[in-house]
Amino acid sequence: MSVMNWPDCSKPHWIQCILTTTKSLSALTKGQFNAPTINEVAVVIVGENVESRDIVLKRRDDCRLQRVYETHRSYDALQYPLMFCRGEDGYHFNIKMVNPTTGEETNKKVSSMNFYAYRLMIRLDVDNHLLRYRRLFHQYCVDMYVKVQTERLNFIRFNQSKLRSDEYIHLLDAIATEGHAANIVCLTILPATYVGSPRHMHEYAQDAMTYVRNYGRPDLFITFTCNPKWPEITNLLLPGQTSSDRPDITARVFKQKITVLMNYIVKQKVFGAVSGWMYSVEWQKRGLPHAHILLWMFDKIRPDQIDSIISAEIPDKQTDPEMQITNTIPNVFKKI
C-alpha cells in the first residue's frame, strides 16, 4: 500500500491499493482466493465525510503553493494533461443551462452529472477523443463519478433543513431517551432518494418483501447476462478497442436490452400473464453486468410444466430464426 500526502494536508486524499500474492495455493483453496487477474480502476475515500480533493501547484514566479480544487474549471486539464492538452475548461459552478429552442441562458445551473454525461456522449459528427484513452478513460470516469457523488452529498449535508431530517423517527427517539438534545451530535441524514444509502437499500428490501407477502413465492427466476460480442457493442467500438475499454457502450446497450426483455416478458406474455416482477442488476469483472429477474405469474407453474419452460441450448438459426434477431429480442437463458 502506498499513501501520498500533499503538503499541509492532515489526511491523505488518495490511497492506491495493490493486491499481489507470491504464495502458492493449495488444492483446497485453488480458485477461491486467487489474486485478481484483471487490473481495475477504483477509488478509496478515507474518512466518513467526503473531503474535497485538490491539486497543489508550484508557481513559476515564487515557491508558494497554490491549491486547485476539484470544482475549479482547470482541474480536469491539470489532472489529465494528456486528455486535455489544450487546457480546455472542465466543470465549474457557473455553467448556465441553455434553452434548446431559443439558445438563451436560463437561471438554472448545470450539474456535474449533466456536464460529464454530455462529455461522454457519442456524436456522429464529432470525434470524442476522450473515448480513445482506454485505462486513462476508466480513471477519468471513476474520478468524475466521485466528483458527482461529492456534489450530491454536499447538497444533502447543507440542506438538511429542507429535507426535514429533524423529523426522522430515530432522532426523535434519541431525544426522548436522553430527555434533552444537548448531547445529540448533529448528524447528516441520507434520504432514501440517495442511491446506495442505507435508507435506499432498506426501502427496496421492504418493497421486495411486500411482493412476497402479497403474491407468495416467485414462479420464475431468470438470469440475463451481458454478452460483450453483441453487435450493438462491437459496431460502436473504435479500431483496436475491446468491450472492456468502453464501459459506457456496455452499460447503455445492456440497459436497452433489459428494457426490451422485460417488455417481451410482461407485455407479450411469453411465459403467460405476469402479476408482478422485479430485477436486480449486478456488475461482474471486466464491467459486464447481469440481471436477476423474479416473476410472479397469475397461473402458477406446476412441476410437470418445468421441462416446457427451461431451455439450456443456444437457439438454432433454422428452427428458431426469431431468436437470432438481436436488435429486437435478446437471447434469453432461463432457469428455475
Results as ranks from 00 to 15, higher is better:
Lys257Cys: 06
Met297Cys: 04
Lys334Met: 10
Trp14Asn: 10
Cys9Thr: 07
Lys96Pro: 04
Asn183Asp: 08
Glu178Lys: 06
Val56Gln: 15
Val110Gln: 11
Tyr116Lys: 02
Ile189Pro: 00
Gln149Ile: 08
Val185Gln: 13
Asn128Gln: 06
Trp277Asp: 01
Trp277Lys: 00
Gln16Asp: 11
Tyr118Gly: 07
His170Leu: 08
Ala117Arg: 15
Ser280Lys: 12
Leu28Phe: 09
Thr22Leu: 02
Ala35Arg: 12
Cys186Glu: 15
Leu238Tyr: 09
Glu88Asn: 11
Met209Trp: 05
Ile336Leu: 14
Arg246Ser: 08
Asp8Leu: 09
Pro247Asn: 13
Gln241Glu: 14
Leu19Gly: 01
Val46Phe: 00
Gln284Glu: 14
Ile15Gln: 02
Ile314Pro: 00
Leu82Tyr: 04
Tyr118Asp: 10
Tyr194Glu: 13
Val146Gln: 02
Lys267Asn: 11
Thr37Ala: 12
Asn331Met: 13
Lys11Cys: 03
Asn49Lys: 08
Gln160Tyr: 05
Tyr75Gln: 02
Arg164Ser: 15
Ala273Tyr: 02
His292Ser: 08
Asp76Leu: 10
Asn114Glu: 14
Val142Ser: 06
Leu236Ala: 13
Met1His: 05
Gly179Asp: 01
Asp125Tyr: 09
Ala291Arg: 08
Gln32Arg: 11
Arg64Met: 06
Leu153Gly: 00
Glu104Tyr: 10
Lys58Gly: 09
Thr259Val: 04
Thr259Ile: 06
Asn39Arg: 15
Asp143Met: 05
Val260Gly: 02
Thr326Lys: 11
Asp299Cys: 07
Thr328Ile: 12
Ile258Gly: 00
Ile95Trp: 07
Cys186Val: 04
Ile222Leu: 12
Ser26Gln: 05
Pro231Val: 07
Arg134Tyr: 04
Asn263Gly: 11
Asp61Val: 07
Val126Asp: 09
Gln66Leu: 11
Lys96Trp: 09
Ala176Ile: 03
Gly216Leu: 04
Val3Asn: 01
Asp299Ala: 09
Leu172Ala: 05
Val110Tyr: 01
Thr319Val: 09
Cys85Gln: 06
Asn227Cys: 10
Asn107Gly: 15
Val260Trp: 05
Val44Ala: 06
Ser26Met: 04
Pro36Asn: 14
Ile189Asn: 03
Gly240Phe: 05
Pro12Ala: 09
Cys63Glu: 15
Pro231Leu: 11
Met113Trp: 04
Ala176Trp: 02
Pro247Cys: 12
Leu295Ile: 15
Gln256Arg: 15
Thr223Arg: 09
Asn49Tyr: 02
Arg157His: 08
Cys85Asn: 08
Trp277His: 10
Ile18Val: 14
Pro100Gly: 08
Ser10Met: 02
Ala205His: 13
Lys96Tyr: 12
Ile265Val: 13
Gly196Asn: 07
His92Arg: 12
Glu282Ile: 04
Lys229Gly: 06
Lys285Gln: 15
Ser243Ile: 05
Gly90Phe: 03
Lys30Ser: 13
Asn94Lys: 13
Ile95Ala: 07
Leu130Asn: 01
Ile336Arg: 15
Asp304Tyr: 14
Thr210Tyr: 04
Lys162Gln: 11
His292Asn: 14
Thr20Phe: 03
Phe254Cys: 09
Ser311His: 10
Thr101Asp: 12
Ala117Tyr: 06
Leu171Asp: 05
Cys186Gly: 10
Met278Lys: 09
